[in-house]
């Protein structure tokens, strides 16, 4: 027997329903927060509970999904760039999760691989671009093509010379440092899967470092976060990154001292605008 299940456990709350809906659920329009879920007694209604479980399952899968190196290499080659696949010193995901230090270092094979590349390619570059799985390979799979298509033309526009694009499995942010150092790059850009949120398993982060070398501190990088279709746009992220790179070139540094402190008081209001809890 086949029964078609509709994915709507408690489609509509009616008179007989034990679920008390919340009259303010239309405020969901203003936030992604899980407000107005209603209640069964004092507890989560079935629909909200199962939605959470599904979202958590997706976020978990995003953490454990392997990076598709082959597809990424093809995608990079199609854009007329060389792809170099690398691996961090963390052998697998279990080790990666327990040993952040290993995810910041290259494996011995990866070091050899980069040395061999340098033997035949002596020329230095302006930018080392690194793609790493981080905590969400899905963020890379979903976002990398449109992200590259927005960014790469802007890089050539500036006349910057882009080195080979490295693709790193089990990588953390700081792995961009030894890679940038080996490639003799003036700056490094690492695109990495961020820690997946329940509502954002696909969030891409970009970290920018001036003069990358092993031992750089996190305070010497700039971060652009939450890049995904429902978050920060590829265009906005690209604008900010190019701004940071130009500033870094001018001041010969990156990190907290480049902080974008562009918020001015006049943009902020007095705390009343938009506050629907106060008389309007």
């Amino acid at each position: 027997m086949t029964k078609h299940i509709t994915a709507q456990p408690s489609a509509k709350a009616d008179h007989a329903s034990p679920v008390t809906p919340n009259p303010w659920s239309r405020l969901k329009h203003y936030t992604d927060a899980r407000i107005g879920l209603g209640r069964a007694g004092h507890s989560l209604p079935t629909e909200a509970h199962l939605t959470f479980q599904l979202d958590h399952a997706r976020a978990r899968d995003a953490v454990h999904q392997p990076l598709d190196i082959e597809a990424l290499s093809t995608l990079i080659n199609e854009r007329q760039h060389r792809a170099i696949p690398l691996h961090s010193a963390a052998r697998d995901r279990a080790e990666y999760l327990k040993r952040p230090d290993l995810g910041r270092r290259l494996s011995d094979e990866a070091i050899q691989h980069l040395d061999q590349y340098r033997d035949t390619h002596r020329e230095d570059c302006d930018i080392a671009l690194i793609i790493a799985d981080g905590l969400s390979a899905r963020a890379i799979h979903d976002n990398i093509a449109p992200m590259l298509d927005t960014l790469l033309p802007r890089i050539s526009e500036q006349g910057w010379k882009l080195g080979p694009i490295t693709v790193v499995e089990q990588g953390r942010v700081a792995i961009g440092d030894p890679i940038g150092e080996k490639l003799k790059a003036r700056m490094s850009i690492i695109m990495i899967g961020e820690r997946p949120g329940l509502s954002s398993p696909d969030s891409l982060g970009i970290y920018f470092t001036w003069a990358p070398h092993s031992g750089r501190r996190d305070s010497e990088r700039n971060c652009i976060s939450n890049i995904r279709p429902a978050g920060q746009s590829y265009a906005a992220a690209t604008d900010l990154l190019i701004y940071l790179m130009l500033e870094a070139e001018r001041r010969q540094l990156s990190g907290v001292q480049l902080k974008d402190d562009s918020i001015v008081d006049s943009q902020l209001g007095d705390g009343r605008q938009g506050n629907l809890l106060l008389p309007h």
């Binding site: 303010w24 203003y30 936030t31 107005g36 209640r39 978050g231 209001g269 506050n275």
Partner: peptide, 22 residues
């Protein structure tokens, strides 16, 4: 904890209302 990724006042107020009503 009415956090919002861009500190949007309406979004924050909506979460505060939700919390107080619970």
């Amino acid at each position: 904890q009415p956090n919002h990724p861009t500190d949007n006042p309406t979004g924050i107020a909506a979460s505060i209302l939700d919390g107080l009503m619970y």
